[in-house]
Write a protein that binds this DNA or RNA. Structure first.
Length: 547
RNA sequence: GCGCCCGUAGCUCAGCCGGAUAGAGCAGCGGCCUUCUAAGCCGCCGGCCGCAGGUUCGAGUCCUGCCGGGCGCGCCA
């Protein structure tokens, strides 16, 4: 309410000064330093240049326009021309009431207006167990999906299963080789093919499938590969579920073939005049759409490339009616980004429809020593090992602390050692502590409606800081969602937890000087607990009541 | 060679699409448990934001060029 009013007043002031402020050009932000107020705008600095005016003077004009607005207590010009607004305590403290009233929905918004959005992530080949890189993508994609849901989008989580092609072929041959080896054969057939899968799990699967009677030595590699892929995929699903990641849709690549999507896609490409033949192959004019060069979609021998199935896949997504699609790809797909965007341009898909995010690599360290991550190298650290070793909560939090674009060093030894000091426990403990206080307070009191407390009793600076942080939460959620950066919430959660832990050690909640104060403090504590819980939930991290 | 990502405290990373004295965790040093959980709190130490230019009122943030680390560049997926 107050903020909308301020925004309107700011626009008016700028208009009076002769400036046209477009959407998002003149905005208020929350200064990190509370001594600069609760809301600040640099509009005077931005527009002074355009108007050829003195920034301090323009700031003064803006400040005059804002001064006295309901819900504010001070409007000042500071520094080179910032306009700082301090909100009335009631406005800030009201966030406590809001948080308690809305509960698990505190921070939820209608930003997305129900638009259908798809987030595709992990999408590993069914040729081996999920590894730590997949785990990071899983944590990221799921958190992003949660954020988008929470900000009013209709979100679908999709996993693309590449169950066609060379890698499947190699899997079948590899498993068959291990099977023959198990049965005592020594010939060429019992050798893992060039580029095949050498991991221990291949033996395990060959053995298991054989004992279940699902495969035999007489079976060809196609049948064996299919059986193995099913087994592996089932394992991936289990891993993901235990990691608290659930997909709405598992899209099998072979569906594109079964539904004849490939020739249809070729027709579309041809009709748009975006493809041409050269050297017996069919090429797409991706260079004309921002890619470095044109790309082959059908090889000279008639087989489609992976790129072509990818185009068919994305056309399918478009036909399914998503207003926006986010692809979370692994670091090994970096080379795809340009191709995919070029494809979107060539197909005249709406601008910004396809968003590609690379979830960067994970350098796994064990006591400072690098662990090889390549699937084909055989030695790998699985998602399962990560979970079992440091726990789902800590793992998810750890993966989400960094921005997706930066490489991540994940030292197991360190993660294990740090466990007691891990930021995730710090944030969780904040929630547990509030629950503990509620338990001590007794059921009736702890569940009292926030309206019963006189929040005006909260007159300590620390109390206002916490209320301000709670007030800021919806903005933090919005920023994290809009910028696709869940890691902002890890920072937020630990920040709020720090404020509370500090407060806890200096002031008594229940044994406050007066009963009225105690009630107000309890409401504040409950609001903190609720907000931390909401932040953690968006990250897919649990908020235990006892630790 | 071309392209992308990253260089911020001893270590791992934040830094809100140019803003006000650059933050946190860990590590190190020193304090704090008769209290609603010490998985906590308080204090100290610690930074030519890789280097050099440029853009402007203002640069860790944007541009250019180097240096260093990583990754991607196939009629593979």
């Amino acid at each position: 309410m107050t903020e909308e009013k301020l925004q309107a007043l700011l626009q008016e002031a700028l208009a009076r000064a002769g400036a046209e402020a477009g959407e998002g050009e003149a905005e208020f932000t929350v200064p990190p330093d509370a001594s600069h107020g609760d809301l600040t705008t640099n509009a005077a600095l931005v527009f002074a240049k355009k108007l050829g005016a003195d920034p301090r003077k323009l700031a003064g004009d803006i400040a005059r326009a804002l001064r006295g607005a309901p819900g504010t207590t001070a409007v000042d010009v500071a520094g080179p021309g910032f306009v700082n607004v301090r909100l009335a305590d009631e406005v800030i403290l009201n966030a406590i009431t809001e948080a308690l009233r809305r509960g698990d929905d505190y921070g939820r918004s209608e930003l997305g207006r129900g638009a259908k959005v798809q987030v595709e992530f992990v999408s590993a080949n069914p040729t081996g167990p999920l590894n730590a890189v997949n785990a990071r993508a899983a944590a990221y994609g799921d958190a992003l999906a949660r954020l988008l849901e929470f900000t009013g989008y209709d979100v679908e989580r999709e996993f693309y299963v590449c169950n066609v092609g060379t890698q499947m072929d190699l899997l079948g041959r590899s498993v068959r080789a291990r099977l023959l080896e198990l049965l005592g054969e020594t010939g060429e057939q019992a050798e893992i093919p060039e580029g095949g899968y050498r991991g221990e799990y291949v033996k395990t699967i060959a053995n298991a499938l054989y004992e279940q009677g699902k495969i035999s030595a007489e079976d060809g590699h196609e049948k064996i590969g299919q059986a193995a892929a099913e087994e592996i995929l089932a394992g991936q699903k289990r891993d993901l579920e235990d990691f608290r990641v659930r997909f709405d849709n598992w899209f099998y690549e072979d569906l594109l073939y079964r539904e004849n999507k490939i020739p249809k896609t070729l027709d579309i490409l041809a009709s748009r005049g975006t493809s041409y033949e050269k050297d017996g192959a069919l090429w797409l004019r991706t260079a004309a759409a921002g890619d470095d060069e044109d790309r082959v979609v059908v090889r000279a021998d008639g087989r489609p490339t992976y790129f072509l199935t990818d185009i068919a896949y994305h056309l399918d997504k478009y036909e399914r009616g998503f207003a926006k699609v986010v692809d979370v790809l692994g670091p090994d797909h970096y080379g795809h980004v340009k191709k995919l965007q070029a494809m979107a341009t060539l197909l005249a898909l709406p601008g910004g429809w396809l968003e590609v995010i690379i979830s960067q690599q994970v350098n796994l360290l064990e006591g400072g020593e690098k662990v090889k991550m390549s699937k084909r190298a055989g030695a790998l650290v699985t998602m399962r090992e990560v979970m079992d070793d440091i726990g789902v909560d800590a793992a998810r939090f750890f993966f989400l602390m960094r921005s997706p674009s930066s490489h991540l060093d994940f030292d197991f030894e360190l993660a294990r050692m740090q466990t007691p000091e891990n930021p995730v426990y710090y944030a969780q403990y904040c929630h547990a502590r509030v629950e503990s206080i509620k338990g001590e307070a007794g059921e009736e009191w702890a569940a009292a409606p926030p309206e019963k407390a006189d929040l005006g009793e909260l007159d300590l600076p620390e109390e206002r800081s916490m209320a301000r942080a709670i007030w800021e939460f919806p903005k933090a959620v919005e920023a994290a969602a809009t910028r696709r950066e869940p890691h902002r919430l890890t920072t937020y959660a630990t920040g709020l937890a720090a404020l509370f832990h500090n407060y806890y050690h200096h002031h008594r909640v229940l044994q406050a000087p007066t009963a009225a104060k105690a009630q107000a403090r309890l409401a504040l504590a409950r609001a903190v607990g609720q907000t931390v819980k909401n932040a953690l939930r968006l990250l897919g991290v649990s908020a235990p009541s006892r630790m």
